[in-house]
Nucleic acid binder design. Sequence first.
DNA 1: GGGACGATCGAT
DNA 2: TCGATCGTCCCC
Length: 213
Amino acid sequence: MLEPQFFAHRSTLEVAQRLLGMELVHDSPEGTTAGIIVEVEAYMGPHDKGAHTYGGKVTPRTRAMYGPPGHAYIYLIYGMHHCLNVVSAPVGAPEAVLIRALEPTRGIELMARRRGLDLPPPDGEGYPVRWLKKLASGPGKLCQAMGINMEHYGLSLMEPPLYLRHARDPIPTSRVATGPRINIPYAEEFRDKPWRFWIRDNPHVSQSKRPTG
DNA sequence: GGGACGATCGAT
DNA sequence: TCGATCGTCCCC
């Protein structure tokens, strides 16, 4: 299980890269689901024109971003989809890391059910990647698959029911790719900051990826 | 009270 | 390329 120390003396950009390869777990009444984080984006506080906290605005929605690191900042986008962020900086510094894609590891059937997808025909070696990548290869999709919603707003991600854990060795820098963040055309000079990170060649990274950086 | 808009997704 | 769908935020 992740500890508060993880965030100490570590910048948001470092936190973002370190989250790659970690497992996000949700113990819910319906069952447990989990996945390895394979894609993230960093949102860098009051100066970042792509961030909800640009200008240092404090609103009911963004309140959690000003809270302690390791807690969940969740918002509803387009009236339909939830997105999960890990607050990444000390109290008062509204920085966070958006979780953009997971590689499903546990509770595949439950994830499929939540996503409204039919299970593929039985296969000797588990489910084909072509099908698994439909489950959580995007920030809205992963929240739906994991059963994450506003009930989890502000909760610690360092203890059940929704938590992060070290499931593998850290992803070496050589396997981390970087590039501009997705869908922030209004962010002006921050639009092309290379603050999106993903595990190179991982098939579960969301679509619309741009060339490696 | 009103209106514009969005850190998305999936069908066309 | 475009529509869904509604909470948030800002302005009146």
